[in-house]
Design a protein around this nucleic acid. Structure first.
Lengths: 233, 233
DNA sequence: ACCTGAACACCGTTCAAGT
DNA sequence: ACCTGAACACCGTTCAAGT
């Protein structure tokens, strides 16, 4: 792909940190995070690689900045959601907050991996968790329980879980299927489950399930459990 | 478990895939996963980098092999645990299984990241999940519920969760503290929680908590929730 | 102030050649 | 069969120099 008409690098807009990071996000959204190299990013911006260092300290700071902008998008999305007063129904409020965050991350599939890898503590992520904590506290949680709750949710508070098995390419999927078939005699439970699950939903196998449904199942399990601890009856 | 004593490279033991991978694991355990480069690994084995390619297809296969050996260790550790019959108490059986897996991963701190990044489907990981599934099924779970349960546990089934905030170096920790102090006026809930948590446990802050305790809290939340769905009363 | 080109120190990997 | 050295195509980054 040459420098194409979708961007307009011919207009010589001067570079600035935000434009550098936004372009890097676009690249990662369109392709993969691995394609975001200093050299590739520079070419996309019609500039030499070394020019980027005037706007971004280094590659590590670039990645942190990208994540920070995504968290910013999440904060906006969450703010736009109308959700119940946590004092009336903290569980519904939390659920909607988290599902809103998830919607943003689905637009940036590279972000979960980068967020987990870098475990950065930026102003925007701190603000996001302040908002999460506010819902728990106004819902009647003690500080101690709220603290445990944040840990128990983990990345789910931001709207994602990292799937342990993933599609990868079609070749991998086929290889996995062959391996399962070969090992079938040693895997009575797994084979049985997959057979039955496949009956209910032909597109499902162990690793390629409906993520949204599974995400919500796990989330509700945790929220219900927290509810019981918060208000035992 | 006779961890390999320091073998001197001068003894010229012929290379084989297992020795290559075991040495890579040792390096990753001792330092970081980033120090495991083909060139470094070769030097450690007293050999040229290119020799490794006779025993390992490429770097990707090396990492998969390393993970596979760790999962093998987990399977051994789990097998050595005496746990109740799942028909009597699936929850206790599952809890001990998972905490045993966690003990192995604590010896290989690089493994969680690599496992999540690569989402590989190897024979040993499939066998591990077969065993996990067996406990659910013998505990009375339907295939459908067991399937949801596996997803809800996610990486917790293998004994780990990826912390969103992590120590990093002391400099990072200090920078994070400064940022929190600066933002304090905008963070009433977070500051309040941290103050109270710090009182209970002076070493605790948002990201540097007792992992074992938090892991068990989240795990029990999920297991208890599953119990209620499995046997509603 | 911003951008550049050459260069450095690393990667994983290929290839033809050694023993 | 196993190992090697040189080389290739990439990285991120430093530096001195250009405008």
């Amino acid at each position: 792909m040459t420098a194409s008409a979708e961007e307009r690098p011919q207009t010589r807009v001067p570079l600035n940190p935000e434009r550098v990071m936004r372009t890097a996000i676009e690249m990662a959204d369109r392709d993969h995070i691995e394609t975001v190299t200093m050299r590739n990013l520079a070419r996309r911006l019609g500039v030499e690689a070394m020019s980027l260092y005037h706007h971004v300290e280094n590659k590590s700071a670039l990645l942190d900045g990208m994540v920070d902008l995504v968290i910013g998008e999440i904060i906006e999305e969450v703010a736009a959601v109308e959700s119940p007063d946590p004092r009336d129904d903290w569980k519904a409020a939390m659920r909607e907050r988290i599902l809103a965050a998830r919607r943003v991350l689905l637009r940036h599939p590279w972000a979960p991996q980068v967020i987990e890898q870098r475990s950065l503590m930026s102003p925007s992520i701190v603000l996001y968790f302040e908002g999460t904590l506010e819902i728990f506290r106004r819902g009647g949680f003690s500080n101690d329980l709220a603290h445990h709750a944040l840990h128990a949710l983990g990345s789910r508070a931001l709207g994602f879980t990292q799937e342990l098995f993933q599609p990868a390419d079609a070749g991998d999927e086929e290889a996995a299927g062959e391996m399962l078939a070969e090992m079938a005699p040693k895997l009575p439970y797994l084979v049985g489950m997959l057979a039955e699950i496949a009956h209910d939903d032909p597109d499902s196998t162990l690793g390629w399930c409906d993520d949204q449904a599974e995400f919500e199942f796990g989330l509700d399990l945790l929220l219900n459990g927290l509810e019981q601890i918060n208000r035992p009856q």
